[in-house]
Design a protein around this nucleic acid. Structure first.
Lengths: 225, 225
DNA sequence: TGTATAATCTTTGTCGACAAAATTCCTGGC
DNA sequence: GCCAGGAATTTTGTCGACAAAGATTATACA
């Protein structure tokens, strides 16, 4: 099984990235380059390249002369995270209303249909994933690479935060999200910037409130905000 | 001249990054790994690691099986850049007013003093650098890593854009900037969120307008907005 | 002469190896 | 029994080398 030249590093990067986001590699766990090299049947060089990229993404920390570690969640400041998340929800929805093209809308609607199906069959993991894809589609319609990259990073961090604090995902995203998504699509299609902004903000703040409520309920896991 | 173990990659990264931002390496120019390795008297391994990091910063593009290139400016969307820049000016100034500590203010004031001196002696390059440092200090006072990293990237891109379009820096930042900076400091110190936001926005939009004015004047260099 | 094809050269992606740094384990002393 | 110091092991950072992919040059043919 020969792999194509140049794909080694990317392959390792993709797999590792996914395992970190899925918490198969828990935060704080050390990363052994040699073991990874054996596992993927490559040398240490592409493994190290993948680790450098993951460090740039903020998913691993690269201590000098020491083993790399999956970046810990407690280094994430939750207040910063919520502030940035709300702002990016707002601005991507607003700019999508301003700059979207017709093909953007079809992509957004497809993601929304997938999200709706996940909600209907009460598949919590799929809800997280499809909700994320829905908002990434909106961010792509906003046609601003700066906001897209920050938003992507925020949603990735959010996945890890949710899984760390509410590991089992027993809490389901409500039907209400489906309706809010529909309203956002309508505002984007209508090109109503203010309404899109308002909906994005309300949607984001509802998510933040929900997370914070769960956190106060589980005060044993509480961390300083 | 033995260099310390582990510093090789970082050394190459720092030098290259600075040369890219200073346009000593112009956008679009190819990067030869072997030549860099010889120049820095290291092997290709740390050079490649530095290039991967720079690619993550968006400063170089890494084409598979082809030479890496300094990322071209025309891939930057100026509208996106301006949108993101204005928003980050606003939000960092606002959050600095909300979350700053006393040591943040002294750091901000130091940067402002350096900026004032640069304006007084009409040192254009120093103006750019100290103005950037001033706003980074504000962003650090805002205590939000997400916004800080995006803002840093935006200011770096801004340096390259300015140098590409107005290579000689003959245009000087006006005294007015010094006064606006003072007003921002006062609002931050007073904890006046709305005023800080308003000043940040006005400051940013003035900068954007100034750049756009220069661009229309030099329509020969005009690109699509 | 211009173009397509083949041979050659250059440059990247990957590998195994080695040395430095860190970690672990062992030994000796209290 | 516990701690300190040092040896041995493990793991990282760097290196030189080789093969594959791309770029370049040379060649054959129309």
């Amino acid at each position: 099984m020969e792999r194509k030249r140049g794909s080694g590093s990317k392959h390792v990067y993709d797999i590792l990235r996914n395992e970190i986001l899925e918490l198969a590699l828990p935060p704080g766990s050390p990363i052994d380059e040699v073991r990874l090299a054996q596992r993927f049947d490559v040398s240490r060089t592409p493994v190290r390249e993948a680790l450098v990229k993951l460090a740039a993404d903020g998913l691993v920390e690269n201590l000098p002369n020491r083993a790399s570690m999956v970046s810990a969640i407690d280094t994430l400041n939750l207040r910063s995270f919520f502030d940035a998340l709300v702002l990016m929800y707002r601005v991507t929805t607003r700019l999508a209303a301003q700059h979207h093209g017709p093909e953007d809308l079809t992509a957004i609607r497809e993601r929304q249909a997938e999200f709706r199906r996940a909600v209907e069959r009460q598949d919590a993991l799929a809800m997280i994933a499809t909700n994320q894809a829905f908002h990434i589609a909106i961010a792509e319609a906003a046609q601003n690479g700066y906001f897209l990259s920050l938003f992507s990073r925020l949603l990735d961090d959010g996945r890890r935060i949710l899984r760390v604090y509410f590991g089992s995902y027993e809490d389901r995203l409500p039907q209400r999200f489906v309706d809010e998504h529909e309203a956002m699509i309508a505002a984007i299609e209508a090109g109503d910037l203010e309404e899109a902004d308002r909906l994005g903000r309300a949607h984001a703040e509802q998510i933040v409130d929900q997370i914070q409520n769960l956190m106060t309920l589980r005060s044993d896991l509480a961390i300083d905000l």
